[in-house]
Design a protein around this nucleic acid. Structure first.
Length: 582
RNA sequence: GCGCCCGUAGCUCAGCUGGAUAGAGCAGCGGCCUUCUAAGCCGCGGGUCGCAGGUUCGAAUCCUGCCGGGCGUGCCA
């Protein structure tokens, strides 16, 4: 790993063992970037407390045994026991050289594990809307991040493809087919539900207004659940049509989900009975008010009564608790996952806590396997209420994508009129979509965020366009460099902006690793913003192609190249493109 | 009532699992383009980190209690 923290950490391990005994060797040296030096180690203060010795004395003991002469120019003690480390320029140059030769750009390879990640989860026969944006964008970024770290990812798109609404949807589909005189019932499903929300609304309206239709719908649900082949055929058409539509959205958003990742609620139908039997056999199921319930410990309701996970409703049907339990079991037992991720909105945290607890009780979820609810806040409008269109309707993802591309294309046209129309359109699209995704990823996911075109498309601040611009400027230098016969050379770190850039570049792998642990993509965004800032500062102060000496030009080109690679790789890990020019 | 989450500059947000003087962007003010994309860079001003206790060398960060907001709290997902 290129991050100097790694090499320094090893030296601290040795120093800690030598100074304080082998039992302290693996104490975290708490190495951090510092304003007072390149790095500072805070280990002595914590250790001093634990050992009951003055921290400053502990720090001195560590420093006495710390062998970093080959890496650092200076090691000094400060304050209550800070150990400040100043790296040699040659150390930076050497680590950067390693980084440049590393296809992974310093991203570490932890022990691979099988991770199941559940995200996006739109509803069949409904339009995808902003409500699906965060799960889709955050989930995809995390899947890409964990893959970059070498884990085996199994994406599971938990489609809403089952339930009572399908009775009315199927009946409505039949009515529409009859009206249009189609030969085979439902053969024109694609045409009938081209306008998904319209189709759903019509069905809903008819259901509410027409008792006969409502009754047909209820009977249809029974047929569907009973496995009636003709009904299932119609249901499959609805699912297939929606699925094709989702794929179009995913493709235009640059989401890695494919139809192979689809594992909707219906997938678990055959397993629900068995899940209840297994839970029951373990003594976890209780009958209460006519329903079968699991009462995981630690959850209480309004009157302090235990909260149930209803695994079978009064009417004998199954709800989402049962499906989620079946999914947990399937993912652990059959898919062999040791880490389950659920990228689902924060309001469902209690539900997942209960499902996970029940799964633990059932013995399905046991260490080293663990399950995590990757919760996120809502997308709000400028009024701080749920993001809606001006007329108060939910914002469709398709419309959002189009508007993003349009707005960005307009700006590109203004800012860079020299680009040909095709490039302008492609770049505008990349910027627009990147801006939307980045806005979603760049702040702490647990918090709500306000959807604001102006801010996400701004070219200043922590935005996708700012990062893309930094990348595009570097690529521009290389286009020019080729014409002048210049190419990358040996890296030498000398000037202050070069040092600052170098220190940022070396952090990349550590940051990606942190995102893998914390599942917080905004850390990577913050890092890329710092990197782009360090680069632009360097760019202003250190001429590259105009540098007088060939060696300097070569070194700076190498720095530029590394920066472009890290920016592009970082963005790609987030699921965002980095155009060559803009 | 109980549970979870949030509260940091006028606005939008960071703050690296307890470290040194709390940082960015926007907005305001002032500089920098005969030189690699000025979509940029450099500088200035701006803070009771919701409030009050506690833990300790040290707290925006951890604990407790309040205040304010959001969400959840048995047969929708």
């Amino acid at each position: 790993m290129a991050d100097p923290i790694f090499a320094l950490g090893q030296r601290f391990e040795a120093a800690l063992a030598a100074a304080l005994g082998a039992e302290h060797a693996k104490t975290d040296p708490a190495l951090r970037r510092s304003v007072h030096a390149d790095y500072q180690a805070n280990v002595a203060m914590a250790l001093g407390k634990r050992l009951g010795r003055p921290p400053r004395e502990v720090a001195q003991a560590i420093v006495d045994r710390l062998d970093v002469a080959d890496l650092c120019t200076r090691v000094e003690l400060a304050g209550p026991g800070f150990i400040n480390l100043h790296l040699r320029d040659e150390t930076l140059a050497r680590e950067l050289t390693d980084l440049a030769q590393d296809a992974r750009l310093g991203v570490p390879s932890p022990t691979p594990e099988t991770v199941v990640i559940d995200y996006s989860s739109p509803n069949v026969a409904k339009e995808m809307h902003v409500g699906h944006l965060r799960s889709t964008v955050i989930g995809d970024a995390l899947a890409r991040t964990l893959e970059a770290l070498g884990h085996r990812l199994i994406r599971q798109n938990h489609l809403g493809d089952w339930g009572t609404p399908f009775g009315m949807l199927i009946e409505h589909l039949l009515d529409r087919s009859a009206e249009s005189g189609a030969g085979e019932a439902g053969s024109d499903a694609a045409a009938a539900i081209a306008d998904l929300d319209g189709f759903y609304r019509e069905a809903r309206a008819k259901f509410d207004a027409d008792p006969a239709f409502a009754e047909r719908s209820r009977r249809r649900v029974v047929l569907l659940q009973g496995g009636d082949e003709a009904t299932l055929g119609l249901w499959r058409r609805l699912v297939a049509t929606s699925t094709r539509y989702f794929s179009v959205i995913y493709r235009s958003l640059g989401i890695t989900l494919t139809e192979q990742d689809h594992a909707g609620e219906s997938r678990y139908n055959p397993e629900l009975r068995g899940v209840i039997e297994e839970l029951s056999g373990k003594g976890l199921v209780t009958e209460s008010e006519g329903a079968l319930c699991v009462f995981p410990p630690g959850f209480t309701g309004k009157e302090g009564q235990p909260l149930p996970l209803i695994v079978r409703k009064q009417d004998g049907g199954y709800g989402y608790a049962t499906t989620d339990l079946a999914a947990v079991r399937y993912r652990l037992r059959d898919l062999g996952a040791t880490r389950l991720l659920y990228v689902v909105g924060a309001p469902q945290s209690q539900h997942f806590a209960m499902v996970f607890e029940a799964a633990r009780q059932a013995g399905w979820l046991a260490p080293p396997a663990r399950a995590e609810h990757v919760a996120f806040g809502s997308v709000l409008g400028p009024d701080k209420k749920m993001f809606k269109t001006r007329s108060g309707e939910t914002v469709k993802l398709a419309a959002l994508i189009d508007e993003a591309a349009e707005r960005a294309t307009k700006v590109v046209t203004e800012k860079n009129p020299d680009l040909d129309p095709e490039t302008t359109a492609a770049v505008g699209r990349a910027i627009g979509i990147g801006a939307v995704k980045y806005a979603d990823l760049s702040s702490d996911r647990i918090k709500d965020y306000i959807f604001d075109w102006g801010r996400m498309l701004a070219f200043e601040g922590n935005t996708a366009p700012y990062l893309m611009y930094a990348h595009a400027r570097i690529r521009s230098i290389f286009r020019k460099a080729e014409g002048e016969g210049e190419s990358v050379g040996a890296i030498v770190v000398k000037e202050r902006p070069e040092r600052a850039l170098a220190l940022e570049l070396l952090r990349f792998g550590t940051v990606v690793s942190e995102v893998g642990d914390t599942l917080e993509p905004h850390r990577l965004c913050g890092y890329l913003f710092d990197l782009a800032g360090a680069f632009t500062s360097f760019y202003e102060q250190c001429p590259v192609l105009k540098a007088p000496e060939a060696a300097t030009r070569g070194s700076r080109l190498a720095l530029c190249n590394l920066t472009a690679r890290v920016l592009a790789r970082g963005l790609s890990v987030l699921g965002i493109e980095a155009p060559e020019r803009m």
